[in-house]
Nucleic acid binder design. Structure first.
Lengths: 113, 113
DNA sequence: GGAGTCGCTATGAATAACAGAGTGACTAAC
DNA sequence: GTTAGTCACTCTGTTATTCATAGCGACTCC
């Protein structure tokens, strides 16, 4: 019981930490999109349906700052920027896959408008 | 390659679905807190450090509506309300545990103010 | 009666996300 | 040379969400 209590306490802080990233709209989906390989800003914008330029730019900065993404600039011309998962970012993918599986088995699909 | 592409596409929609719940602030942590067993509103309020009454109330309603939580009223007196995970909610716990593990291994702990 | 807890609701303030316009650098088509 | 498009963002006003806090009726305890 104490062992279990200790584990639950450890999970609380770590889960909170996880949600400092994943509790912000779009981060999980950006990371998931990059699971297929490095992408440019424009491709991410189109792949993560519904996100705005401004929010995408903010999120990419935060995720890069958190060392989950790397931002690689090819000086060109034309200049191009590619975002890729870091190893830490990649380690989230199997968990995201499980989240997706859980969702498809346990959440109702929203009604179509 | 096509099989891999198909999988990635399936994950995208399902991951999006997962984040309709988990991409809102506090939901992951509420579910995690209830992983230890049913709790009252007030205990949840104290356990999920930093959440306000109003948002907790909103979140509990949404999670109940999404069939991840059940809300049980003991008529009393005094009246008391208990929230518990449904089986679907419980099935998220192992994934949350993995999220916590990922976070503790891959995210920097924020500096203390 | 007063103070406290419970399970919320209400409300204004602060913050996050949205919606869309804009920039300079570049390319392609005419 | 001009026009239109794409890229990788930045900017700005609007809308939505979250925060902070007060308050309510029901109840308990002193």
């Amino acid at each position: 019981m104490e062992a279990g209590h200790h584990d639950a306490h450890a999970c609380d802080a770590a889960v909170s930490l996880a949600f400092t990233i994943l509790g912000k709209r779009w981060n999980g989906m950006i990371i998931d999109a990059l699971g297929g390989g490095p992408l440019s800003f424009a491709v991410l914008r189109r792949t993560v349906t519904g996100i705005s330029d401004a929010v995408l730019s903010d999120r990419l900065s935060e995720l890069t700052e958190a060392s989950l993404l790397s931002r690689v600039v090819d000086p060109g011309p034309p200049v191009s920027v590619t975002y890729a998962l870091t190893p830490g970012g990649e380690r989230l993918l199997p968990v995201l896959e499980q989240l997706g599986q859980w969702a498809s088995e346990n959440l109702a699909v929203p009604q179509r408008a």
